[in-house]
Design a protein around this nucleic acid. Structure first.
Lengths: 222, 222
DNA sequence: AACTGTGAACGTCTTCACAGCG
DNA sequence: CGCTGTGAAGACGTTCACAGTT
């Protein structure tokens, strides 16, 4: 069930797998059955050698002289990323952002389902957002157990983020996506990914000031 | 006005400056006037040598045997990131996410102001969101010129993102923050930063499957 | 002939360890 | 003595270039 833990996949590669997955989905929808590393690289906005090296960490899935079978590769990447499983998520903090995330259709990644919402504000508890009843923050432990929560999404104000993280960790959640600014303290067996609007804008500000462009992130020329 | 372009600051360092800035702000609010690289590193969840090397790219701002003056360092980082200037932003796509971003108080980074909203849906045009009137997507060029837009924030569905990017680029915008999934094609003098929920969740999925944790992103142990 | 898979070269980022300064 | 600033070492990531396979 779990992929072979013998192969160590570099973090940089892991971070690009979702990108390849998306590009491959587009190709599959366009009825393309086979794709070369050159074409995949072009569509993803990266170097072809990088594509080949990245994919080689997952195994030898290509055919020399031909390319990669789109459906097969999709399946392998999906398996590697756990997209074949179900990951119930809870959103902590149902303000503007939390509500928007709850309603976010294009949650894109299959398998990631928002199944519960909690908020510390008694006025919000009991309200319905995206067909879910908002529950009290104090119930977080109960909610996580009941819904078998795998991922906690923190969408609280910065000041409440550490409490949210502590609550999630206490409830046994080991993967956290943090939209609040500031640094979270968590035990080192917990994974945290941070998404911070202010940080991204500030990075753009730096390069705008310099008249230079950022290669730090995904896009392709022309 | 513009920082000395002679010093080349590594991208990895640029990406951490907003983090240091936030930590320093916290220290300043707590009336701390001087901070060591050790303490700053602890608060930011990174290695102390990294902090010193990063800061050394900006200049020699510390005092040996003492540490860094919090206010002075804040000012220097702010200058480097362009936080001392005003960056008018437009949000393209006023759905759940676009509206949430428009209302986002903690836009945290001073200087970044959302001053205009545009949407391709005629039903949305004319509505007021976050005290701003939604304007037609066709008016994007006019809007960007009128408001001297520096940064475009794309919050459209995936299918409309490339059109949004083309419109922004055509209007002379050279910094783009993209919340839509998929890869954008832009001229190579345009900076694009991408924020993608699905990607982040998929990365968490990978590590959850492996029982390992991600060092890829900001958090500190314990 | 076309394209993958990969060793080796290269470049970038991180960390160490200590000289240098206050 | 304490802490910064930095050369040097090491780890990591990217790209090249080509041998190997279909």
């Amino acid at each position: 069930m779990t992929p072979d833990p013998g192969r160590r996949i570099p973090e940089a590669t892991v971070a690009r797998l979702p990108l390849y997955y998306r590009v491959l989905l587009e190709s599959a929808e366009a009825r393309v059955s086979t794709i070369s590393s050159d074409r995949l690289a072009e569509m993803a906005g990266v170097n072809a050698a990088k594509v080949r090296k990245d994919l080689s960490y997952l195994g030898s899935f290509g055919t020399r002289g031909v390319g990669y079978d789109v459906d097969y590769l999709l399946h392998e990447i999906a398996r590697e990323l756990g997209l074949t499983q179900d990951w119930p998520c809870v959103i902590v903090g149902v303000g503007n952002l939390g509500a928007a995330l709850a309603n976010y259709r294009g949650f894109g990644a299959r398998g990631f389902r928002v199944v519960a919402l909690v908020d510390a504000d008694p006025a919000k508890v009991g309200q319905t957002v995206a067909d879910l009843r908002v529950e009290a923050f104090a119930e977080l432990g109960t909610v996580c157990a009941r819904e078998r929560i795998a991922i906690g999404i923190i969408a609280t104000p910065a000041g409440a983020a550490q409490d949210a993280a502590d609550g999630l960790v206490g409830a046994g959640v080991r993967s956290v996506l943090n939209f609040a600014s500031g640094v979270l303290s968590v035990p080192d067996d917990v994974s945290v990914r941070k998404v911070d609007l202010a940080t991204e804008l500030q990075i753009l500000g730096f390069y705008q000031l310099r008249g230079a462009n950022t290669a730090l992130n995904t896009s392709r020329p022309a």
